[in-house]
C-alpha cells in the first residue's frame, strides 16, 4: 500500500513527541520493540496518538501484526482510508438526550 508523505510526517512527529525517539531512528524498517524501545503500554498510547492526530478509529486488534515503523504508517493510512468510507457517525448525543 502506498503511504502518503503527510501520514509519514505525522506519524514520525507523534513518535518524536510521544516517545522521545530521535529523528534519525525513524526509518521504515525500524522495529518498534527492538530498535525504537517501545513496549506494550507504548503501543496502546501510540494508537491513541494516531487516532487523535488523524481523527480516525484504529482497530486495536490490528496491533498484533504491527512490527515495524512501516507497519505503523500502513496502519495509519488504512485507518484513514477506512474512515473516509464509513457512513456518518450516528447521532449518539441526541439519542442519549431523548432517553
Amino acid at each position: 500500500m502506498t503511504v502518503s508523505s503527510n501520514i509519514i510526517e505525522q506519524v514520525n512527529a507523534l513518535m518524536k513527541t510521544g516517545f522521545e525517539i530521535p529523528a534519525e531512528k525513524l526509518v521504515p524498517t525500524a522495529t518498534l520493540v527492538g530498535d525504537l524501545g517501545l513496549d506494550s503500554l507504548d503501543a496502546v498510547d501510540m494508537l491513541v496518538y494516531i487516532e487523535e492526530t488523524l481523527n480516525v478509529k484504529v482497530e486495536g486488534e490490528r496491533l498484533a501484526n504491527v512490527k515495524t515503523l512501516q507497519d505503523v504508517y500502513v496502519l495509519a493510512q488504512e485507518s484513514l482510508s477506512n474512515e473516509s468510507l464509513q457512513p456518518q457517525a450516528p447521532l449518539h448525543l441526541e439519542a442519549q438526550g431523548s432517553q
Binding site: L41, V44, D45, V48, E51, E52, Q96
Partner: peptide, 10 residues
C-alpha cells in the same frame, strides 16, 4: 467519549 475510549495506558 462516553467511555474509556482514547485513555492513555499510563
Amino acid at each position: 467519549k462516553h467511555g474509556p475510549e482514547g485513555q492513555l495506558s499510563t
